[in-house]
Amino acid sequence: MHPNDEVKRESTSNAGPIRSAEPPSDDRLTGRHRAPGRRNPLRRSPLRDEGNPPSRIRSAVGSTPVRLTLVTGITCCLGFVAFTESRAATTPTQPLHAALVDTAALADRAAAAEKQAASRAERVAPPTPTPTATTPTPTATAKSKAPTKPAKPKPTKPAKPKPVAGLDQAQMDNAATIVKVGVKLGIPRQGLVVAIATAMQESNLYNLANPALPESLDYPNQGTGYDYDSVGLFQQRTSSGWGAVADLMRPAYAAQAFFEALLQIPGWQQMSVSGAAQAVQVSAFPDAYAQHESRATTIVAALV
């Protein structure tokens, strides 16, 4: 239908059909203006149209259903384009092709960095670790492996016994030496009391030198005595065969000489303290030893 037909129809909707005053035209091939009985010289026969595809396409496009279809398709395309543009305006993302380009570029850069790092690792030797303060050096190791001499224990002085029975420290020390020697020799307690009582009577438990033997003055002593050539705790005489002056001036030697002589007395253990002491010393005052028995027993009890 020609567009002018729509205008004329609207103007004469209530008056009935009105024919156009325009004469029929040979140029119009469709619509009611076509002259009846006349043939359009420009229209080709169906046989010729079969060999001319463009004319068939134009005739198909000119039909109303095809036009409606094209309009609908164009409208849909315009709507899709408008939706895409609005989505792109509200979404702060870059276009797909740009994102793909950036991703590919980043991947290429990462691969190049890995190759460069691998090549550097192959060329450069790993760094040598620096020794720390805790790592021993060869010199320190050699020193540590050197054998060390064990430290010698310092000799400790035995505690001095406290004096008892009215003795002073020098007397108590001499009594302790006598008891120590007797215990070492296995002398019973009775023999220890005999030895302490004898030393109390002979020297009052002091290590005495004698001017009659000038040599005795050269050794450590605690005073002097004047009984012939007697020296030491037990006033033993070198002329009687008790030993050399140097030996008799040592309290330990003098005590051992007395105990050895006591052991030579038969039945000394059944004797009294005074009788056993006199059997060893052969003194001019045999009963003098008995006065020291009580104190000697107290001293031995304090030391043993």
Rank of each mutant, 00 (worst) to 15 (best):
Asn4Val: 14
Asp5Arg: 07
Glu6Leu: 14
Lys8Val: 15
Asn14Ile: 13
Asn14Pro: 00
Ala15Met: 02
Arg19Val: 02
Arg19Asp: 04
Pro23Gln: 04
Asp27Glu: 02
His33Asn: 07
Ala35Gln: 07
Ala35His: 01
Arg38Met: 13
Arg38Thr: 12
Arg39Ile: 15
Asn40Cys: 05
Asn40Gln: 02
Pro41Asp: 03
Arg44Asp: 08
Arg44His: 10
Leu47Gln: 10
Glu50Tyr: 05
Asn52Glu: 10
Pro53Lys: 04
Ser55Gly: 13
Arg56Met: 04
Thr64Cys: 10
Arg67Ala: 14
Leu68Asp: 09
Thr69Gly: 14
Leu70Tyr: 07
Thr72Pro: 09
Thr72Gly: 14
Gly73Met: 14
Phe80Asp: 09
Val81Ser: 07
Ala82Cys: 04
Ser86Leu: 15
Ser86Pro: 04
Arg87Ile: 07
Thr91Gln: 14
Gln94Lys: 11
Pro95Glu: 05
Leu100Asn: 13
Asp102Arg: 11
Ala104Asp: 10
Leu106Gly: 06
Ala107Gly: 13
Ala107Glu: 12
Asp108Thr: 06
Ala110Trp: 06
Ala117Pro: 03
Ser119Arg: 13
Arg120Gln: 13
Pro126Thr: 09
Pro126Lys: 09
Pro127Trp: 07
Pro131Glu: 02
Thr137Arg: 13
Thr137Leu: 15
Pro138Asp: 05
Ala140Tyr: 00
Ala140Trp: 02
Thr141Arg: 11
Lys143Val: 12
Ser144Val: 04
Pro147Val: 10
Lys149Asp: 09
Lys154Leu: 13
Lys157Pro: 09
Pro161Lys: 04
Pro163Ser: 06
Ala165Glu: 11
Ala165Gln: 13
Gln169Arg: 01
Ala170Leu: 10
Asp173Tyr: 01
Ala175Gln: 05
Thr177Arg: 10
Ile178Trp: 11
Lys180Ile: 03
Pro188Gly: 13
Pro188Met: 14
Gln190Gly: 06
Ala195Asp: 01
Ile196Gln: 08
Ile196Tyr: 06
Asn204Arg: 14
Asn204Trp: 10
Tyr206Ala: 05
Asn207Asp: 07
Ala209Asp: 00
Ala212Lys: 12
Ser216Glu: 05
Tyr219Arg: 00
Tyr219Gly: 03
Pro220Ile: 05
Gly225Leu: 09
Gly232Trp: 01
Gly232His: 01
Gln236His: 01
Arg237Pro: 08
Arg237Glu: 01
Ser240Asp: 12
Val245Arg: 05
Ala246Pro: 08
Asp247Tyr: 06
Ala252Trp: 04
Ala254Ile: 06
Ala255Thr: 05
Gln256Glu: 15
Gln256Tyr: 01
Phe258Val: 07
Phe259Cys: 02
Ala261Leu: 13
Leu263Cys: 02
Gln264Asp: 10
Ile265His: 02
Ile265Trp: 00
Gly267Cys: 02
Gln270Lys: 14
Ser272Gln: 03
Ser272Phe: 04
Val273Lys: 00
Ala277Cys: 08
Val280Gly: 01
Gln281Lys: 04
Ala284Arg: 08
Phe285Gln: 04
Ala288Gly: 12
Ser294Arg: 11
Ser294Gly: 11
Arg295Met: 15
Thr298Lys: 15
Ala302Gly: 04
Leu303Glu: 05
